[in-house]
Computed example of a mutant assay.
Amino acid sequence: MKIKFAAYALALFTILSCNSNAQTKKLSLEPKKGKAIAVFAEGCFWCSEHVFEAVVGVDEAISGYAGGTTKNPSYEQVGSNNTGHAEAVAVYYDPNIISFKELVNVFFASQDPTTPNQQGPDRGSSYRSIAFYKNAAEKKIIEDKIKELTANKVFANPIVTEVKQVTDFYEAEDYHQDYVKHNPNQPYVKGVSLPRYNKFKKTYKGKLKPNH
């Protein structure tokens, strides 16, 4: 059993018992006019969602699953590490305010990209680090950032982040959305999500929304 599951198994069981018909759905990655969408996986999507939604220029971050082959996977299926999917976020943003390059900076500033199949206390391939791209220009931005971080020895160990083209993104069950906001006193949130976010706030050089 994954450590993250152990921290909140009872709460999750209660949620699922009340919502046995919870479903995931494939999300369109075609943005509205004047907007853009980026997808990242960096461990627990509760943490990632809270981080990206704090950044100026980001309209919304949606928790979900990406990087695998199983269609409409459930949280339990992804957590089994047999679907190929990782917990991920689809970041809806205004490219006139924030660039994809800056979102990549956020991505690397809010995680440890050197731990294979692990982020903090969470272990398994569903918690691996993946920077997704939609085109060649985005791929180059990610690869250039990895080269920069490596050359500057920002991390003590080699970066293991996957650079992968995004194909499908499945929106996670409703109870995962805005989880930190709705469950600030949940043990995992207090012990992992919020400390990770606070660490990001201290080191990130970009613009953050006030009172987030």
Rank of each mutant, 00 (worst) to 15 (best):
E42K: 11
K164Q: 09
Y197D: 04
A90K: 00
D94A: 00
S63R: 10
F45C: 07
Y170F: 14
G67Q: 02
G57F: 04
K33F: 02
N105P: 05
V192Q: 02
G120M: 00
A86L: 02
A90T: 00
E162M: 06
T150G: 11
A7G: 11
K145C: 13
I142D: 10
K134P: 04
N19G: 12
L103I: 08
L16H: 10
K134C: 06
K33I: 07
Y92S: 04
V180C: 12
T203H: 08
F169M: 01
A6K: 09
K32V: 10
K147H: 14
K207F: 07
E102G: 11
L29W: 08
H50A: 13
L10I: 08
T161D: 05
V51Y: 05
Q186P: 02
Q77C: 03
K35F: 04
T83H: 03
A9P: 11
V180T: 09
K139R: 14
E49D: 08
F52D: 01
K32Q: 15
A131C: 11
L149C: 14
N183V: 00
S48M: 07
N152M: 11
C47E: 04
A90Y: 00
P121W: 09
E143D: 13
K134R: 13
R123H: 14
A136N: 07
S63I: 09
K101E: 15
D122R: 12
E102L: 02
C18D: 09
